[in-house]
């Protein structure tokens, strides 16, 4: 018989819920900042703006081509040695910055792919009635592209939620840190990690449900 202390597990749940707030907050802020940067990158890349476009390619290549954990450590421990201002940076903000920059690289690719998948005729029709490139983007191309990108962006958000657990490695007390702490102090590793995994699973299932709802609403045309 496996020794699983259900009472202990149940007592952990309210504690987890308390630190779920940190996870959710970190994830939502990351999504908002990351998505904003992602749109800027995608638009600059798509418009083929001199100098900026190649820089964006390098940005995306860097953040997609290196591990998130290494990026996190580089900013929080590495760069702080060179730039003393960074020492004042809180662990939460450091995690927020790195998660945002990292997720922006992935999301910009999703948005760019969606923009490219829109029939070229849509842009031509816009231009032919006298719209500017940016008017066409704003009114016609992006609304269609965003709808196309919803599944990929939802995936990115799910990845953000899961990746936010890495923040515990630089000392952010979120859900993962809590589970780690409780497990270590009680030696009830199994219970602690089963509970945290279930909480993540539940959280992400809810997100998946919201995604289907959103897609349904956008499916009017």
């Amino acid at each position: 018989m496996i020794d699983f202390d259900i009472q202990f597990a149940i007592r952990l749940i309210p504690l987890m819920m308390q630190y779920l707030k940190v996870t959710v907050m970190l994830s939502i802020l990351t999504m908002v900042i990351g998505l904003t940067i992602a749109f800027i990158i995608a638009l600059i890349t798509d418009a083929k703006i001199n100098i900026l476009s190649p820089l964006m390619r390098i940005y995306v290549s860097f953040f997609r081509g290196t591990p998130l954990l290494a990026q996190l450590f580089l900013l929080y421990f590495g760069l702080a040695q060179v730039f003393p201002v960074l020492i004042k940076l809180s662990a939460f903000n450091a995690a927020l910055i790195v998660l945002s920059l990292n997720s922006a690289a992935f999301m910009s690719e999703a948005i760019r792919g969606a923009i490219m998948s829109i029939d070229k005729g849509q842009m031509e029709a816009c231009l032919s009635i006298g719209m500017t490139y940016w008017q066409a983007m704003r009114r016609i191309i992006l609304p269609q592209a965003i709808r196309m990108a919803i599944p990929a962006l939802s995936n990115s958000f799910i990845n953000i939620v899961k990746s936010s657990s890495l923040a515990y490695t630089i000392g952010v007390t979120e859900m993962m840190a809590m589970a780690q702490l409780e497990a270590a102090s009680s030696y009830r590793y199994l219970e602690a990690f089963v509970v945290i995994i279930l909480v993540y699973w539940l959280l992400i299932s809810i997100l998946g449900h919201m995604q289907s709802k959103l897609e349904l609403r956008l499916n009017q045309y």
């Binding site: 029709a125 032919s128 009635i129 009114r139 016609i140 709808r147």
Partner: peptide, 26 residues
């Protein structure tokens, strides 16, 4: 472009706009 208009082989109507919105966009 304000004094010319184009009708395409593949229509190229704005997919995210209704019929009326397609007309009044310009």
């Amino acid at each position: 472009r304000k004094s010319t208009a184009m009708v395409f082989q593949n229509f190229n109507l704005f997919k995210n706009k209704t019929v009326l919105e397609n007309i009044i966009e310009s």
